[in-house]
Nucleic acid binder design. Structure first.
Lengths: 339, 339
DNA sequence: GATGCTGACTGAACCGGATAAGCTGAGCCA
DNA sequence: TGGCTCAGCTTATCCGGTTCAGTCAGCATC
């Protein structure tokens, strides 16, 4: 089956290639009658313009890029990325943009991918995930002048556009909720310390701890994996003054923590309350269902995609705060038994 | 920062565009000295050929497509796709192919995407997931003559290349394992019935039931979501002759089932043994860790990608069986207490 | 010294669109 | 009737690569 080109449409309509181009792109230069005739023929023979030819003359790829910097094995576990991607995708496909995905091992590889995409003109812009403190990707992208939206912040995104959610407010609300239930010994199992949002949450945790006089509030470090989350939980629950509530920086670690607690003979929420960041269907799957800090991640992705398309279109780089994560209380939180 | 083109390289080397093209692509037609000089200049000014221009003249996109037919909300939950994608990606990026992703709502939309990709020459081939019985996508792709590899089978893939794992053998092994432990009342919570691999597993389950004389072996239908998995489990465990072991068609339903069992006061594995299909880190996260049927999904994806690139290169469509899923016994299976 | 041959390279066409510039005929007005 | 405008087209050029048909110097051959 031969793919129809603009020349085929032109020939069947008895006009020139130029006329067809004007007609299909809604440009003036053809009469309404001719336009309709051309549109009908294009539909009939199933014509869609070659993305390569269009990209070549328009100097725009019609695609945006997303590089995921995770080892292959752990990428699948967190539902976050798939949810984000589906939201991004919904927005892009509505505007006939394609999404190009690449999995990379580290930031050097990621920067190399950006450089290659830029040179090949393969994408018109990129979405940057997992912002770190002093992130080398930021100056690299600024130097390339490749349109980009950083998912993360605020702060540390240089001249680039960025989108974030107010994690500090969400964390503060969560601690206040636990304190209102009667908890004083609250622990937090944090994700990788050099991620910008971990830093923000850590600062907020320190601030609320100070404000509410929670001397026993501790943060322990982990890396978002179930293994590490379980290990951190085991350490916390074995200590002399074990916490009565734990906030986990993601859902996977929270589920691992729940299992550890059950394994150690503690009941949840009787002996231990658990709050998960990143609400996902997983949180509703376990018993008891986890109280979680959630937000609409597909909407977040869609928002980022919209913002990126605006930057690609030449609008100034915005710094936008998205919806603040909201706490959904479920069965894993309750007043501490030994109050 | 202006992007260098082949003309820039040619000018600096004092040769024609053609000579640069020959030099960079390892074609004969330039002397070794000139080739080295051109390569040095290309590296120096950071030249990478425009993917659009190359695609236009080579009539190859340098990209392969993957359409995911899932609603946005549930896409994130199953780790399967991310693991598959990371494997596909590893193979593709090693050969400088890009991966284009699109999320679609149903098969009609998916076929429309294939048609558009084909017309736009946006991808050189596609990977097809979640094969159904009488899958309309197969004839559509055959008609378009768009190179494709179907992940699923055997059978029902028409003239297209396909890759599958021997689910029948894996299911049989699992049932035999449970029977060896002493189970007789074995239930299976199946995924969507019109998926080809569900059908294959169902047939295998019926065969082994017959062979081993397991009159009480039942299959109940579900849809891979945690909610439905939980509901099916509740129904099974409420019946007069409740099963002593349940095999779930994916990890998410198995975890939901585990929670339901615990919620109903049953101990796992004492009162109920659980086996999950699709081993993933999630299975090791819960307590007790789930006995699971696993395979190397990234490797599966890489295999599929390799196969697709072979088809794109013009080799005949192969039908290949990948590694058979293997059973990893963990804490969720044991002899039934009331034997 | 004319001929053939080969290696190294150039020039131009081509891929399939977008678009600026040019052309044509109808309609209008003076 | 000639000149003007303008809608409605056509033609030509460009985007940045690949590739094919030449060109030309240098060398061997008879």
């Amino acid at each position: 089956m031969k793919r129809p080109t603009i020349a085929d449409v032109a020939q069947r309509a008895g006009v020139s290639k130029g006329a067809v181009s004007y007609a299909l792109n809604g440009q003036p230069g053809v009469s309404e009658a001719t336009r309709q005739r051309i549109l009908a023929i294009a539909t009939e023979i199933g014509f869609s313009p070659s993305s390569a030819a269009r990209a070549l003359s328009a100097a725009a790829a019609g695609a945006i890029g997303l590089a995921l910097c995770r080892p292959a094995r752990t990428l699948g576990v967190e539902p976050f990325f798939m949810a984000l991607i589906s939201g991004v995708e919904a927005e892009l496909s509505a505007r006939s943009y394609a999404l190009t995905l690449q999995v990379v091992a580290d930031h050097d590889a990621e920067i190399a991918v950006y450089r290659r995409w830029w040179g090949e003109r393969r994408v018109d812009g990129v979405l940057v995930c997992d912002l770190r403190t002093d992130d080398r990707r930021i100056p690299a992208l600024e130097q390339l002048q490749l349109p980009a939206v950083v998912i993360g912040g605020p702060g540390g995104t240089g001249e680039l556009a960025s989108l974030w959610s107010d994690d500090a407010a969400a964390l503060t609300e969560t601690v206040e909720y636990l304190v209102a239930l009667g908890h004083r010994r609250i622990a937090r199992v944090a994700g990788l310390p050099d991620l910008r949002h971990t830093e923000i949450r850590t600062d907020a945790f320190a601030a609320v701890r100070q404000r509410l006089g929670l001397a026993d509030a501790v943060t322990v470090w982990s890396d978002y994996t179930g293994e590490e989350g379980a290990r951190a939980t085991r350490r916390l629950l074995s200590s002399a003054q074990r916490p009565t509530a734990v906030i986990y920086d993601n859902d996977v670690m929270a589920i691992a923590g729940l299992s550890v607690a059950q394994e150690m003979g503690l009941t949840v929420p009787g002996d231990l309350s658990i709050v998960a960041w990143d609400d996902s269907p997983l949180c509703r799957l376990v018993h008891p269902p986890l109280t979680a800090l959630g937000r609409d991640i597909p909407a977040y992705g869609a928002h980022a995609a919209r913002q990126l398309l605006a930057v690609v279109a030449g609008q100034p780089a915005g710094r936008v705060q998205d919806e603040t994560p909201h706490l959904t209380p479920r069965g894993s939180t309750a007043p501490p038994r030994d109050r």
